[in-house]
Amino acid sequence: MAFKLILGAWLSIILIVGFSFPITTNPTNWYDLPFVPGLEDKARILFFHVPMAWVTTLAFIISLIYGIKYLTKKNLDYDIISSSSAGLGMMFCVLATVTGSLWAKFTWGSFWNWDPRETSIFVLLLIYGAYFALRSAIDGDEKKATLSAVYAIIAGITVPFFIFIMPRIVEGLHPNEAIVSQGKISMNKTMLVIFLSSLAAFTGLFFWILNLKVRAARLESKYYLKGE
């Protein structure tokens, strides 16, 4: 309970701080955020969009781990965790894609540019979509659990290939690549602290919602067991 209240307060503080700290060309005060040419106020997306993308990946990894656990132990409880995590991951994936796309329109000029990271999140979205399409097409809990776990593993194995492939096809547009090419990292200490605490807060939020989802799914399966 205490953990949840702290999380609520924490994310509220991040929202206030992330929006209200001024962006100046020459950061001197502790609360000043650095000015990035071409980004200005749009740099604030960092505090909200990147954690969403991180949670998407985290959810996929958790889904993968519990999928493997299901295959070795054949315990349906692992499948409940695995599929709940994938469901949440898909939601965060849509959020990250939409926020990123909206931001890209005003920074890079179009909603979609096939930048390496845009491509990989698009592929992740496709995988999540295919995963749930597969689940809805199979009858029987155990069959559903096994096949979707196998599919998640095969799909997860192919994702790292994009790290090698995409740079050969298009050049990166994402801000961190632009920042590195200028020869200095323009994220100052304040920005880094807000960013990292936002990452932690979003991770906490993800685990909380996952916990709720898993408990609801467990109750559902218990109800069906009782009914039969």
């Binding site: 949840k4 609520g8 709720l212 408990r215 609801a216």
Partner: peptide, 25 residues
Amino acid sequence: YIVMSIVLIGWVGIFWYLLRLDKKM
């Protein structure tokens, strides 16, 4: 700051809802 307060109110609403859901569960 207007945007900030709108987002903040949205988050507080979601947070409150999650807390209620947790209790109900």
